[in-house]
Amino acid sequence: MRRVSAVLIASALGTFALLITKAGARPAVASVANVVRSGDRVTSTGPKIVLTHGIVQVRVTITDGKITDVAALSLPHDNPHSWDDSSAAAVKLRSEVLAKQSANIDVVSGATFTSRGYAHSLQAALDAVGHS
């Protein structure tokens, strides 16, 4: 009986610690942006942003000073739920970036961490090429 109580308490404390860590988690940057220039076209790959459920990395293409493409190179995929939410969010985030022409985008409900990681990686890629 004592052993069961100890296991339950340890499990509860572990779950509590995980929830607190997730709630205050800030994305960690794993690398710097990579830039490739070709005539009037610039492609910049943002850093890998490490999140609780995986990594987010974004590549942006700018032609004649306008964002013409954005691609998520990596999205969280540690479980099917994370992958589904992240994949759906990436479509919405891409559309918003192309419309707003900036990394100042809204968080997608249900994919808050992915959205923030996407925006951080994108902003670093834009900063690397001096795009405001």
Rank of each mutant, 00 (worst) to 15 (best):
V107T: 15
T68D: 09
R37V: 13
V70R: 02
R2E: 15
P76F: 00
H81S: 14
K66E: 07
I67W: 02
V4C: 11
A111M: 00
P80H: 04
H131N: 04
L13V: 15
G117P: 03
A90Y: 01
A99F: 13
P76A: 06
R94N: 10
S132M: 13
K22I: 15
L75N: 07
S38G: 09
V70T: 12
F16K: 06
T52G: 11
H81K: 12
F16S: 15
S44R: 09
I9K: 06
P27R: 03
D64F: 05
A17Q: 04
R37C: 05
D40A: 08
V58H: 02
L93C: 05
Y118F: 05
M1T: 13
L19E: 15
G54A: 04
I20C: 15
N104D: 07
W83P: 13
A30W: 03
A128G: 05
A30E: 05
E96F: 09
V29K: 07
A125D: 00
T15E: 15
H53V: 15
I49S: 07
A89M: 01
G46T: 02
V36D: 07
S5L: 15
V107H: 12
S87Q: 13
Y118E: 01
D85Y: 12
V42N: 05
P76T: 05
N34A: 12
D106I: 02
L73G: 08
T61Y: 03
T61A: 06
G117D: 02
N104G: 06
L19R: 06
G24V: 13
G110R: 02
S121P: 04
D40R: 10
G130M: 03
Y118C: 02
I20P: 13
F113R: 11
V91R: 09
S44H: 07
D106L: 06
A119H: 04
V42H: 08
R26L: 10
Y118N: 04
V7I: 12
H53F: 10
A72R: 02
V56A: 10
G14H: 01
F16Y: 04
A33N: 05
L13E: 06
S86F: 02
S95C: 08
K100H: 05
P27W: 01
I67Y: 02
A6E: 11
A12N: 10
N104W: 05
S115C: 04
S31V: 03
A71N: 11
T63P: 06
V91M: 09
R2V: 14
I20V: 14
A33I: 03
A88Y: 09
S5Q: 15
A124N: 12
D78P: 10
A72W: 03
S44V: 01
L75F: 00
L126Y: 03
L122D: 01
S121L: 00
D85E: 13
P80S: 04
S87N: 15
T63H: 09
E96T: 07
L18D: 14
R41D: 10
S109Y: 08
V58F: 00
S31G: 09
D106Y: 14
A125G: 01
V97F: 00
S11Q: 11
S87A: 13
S121G: 07
R41P: 07
A6T: 10
D106F: 12
A6M: 11
T114R: 04
D78Y: 14
R3C: 14
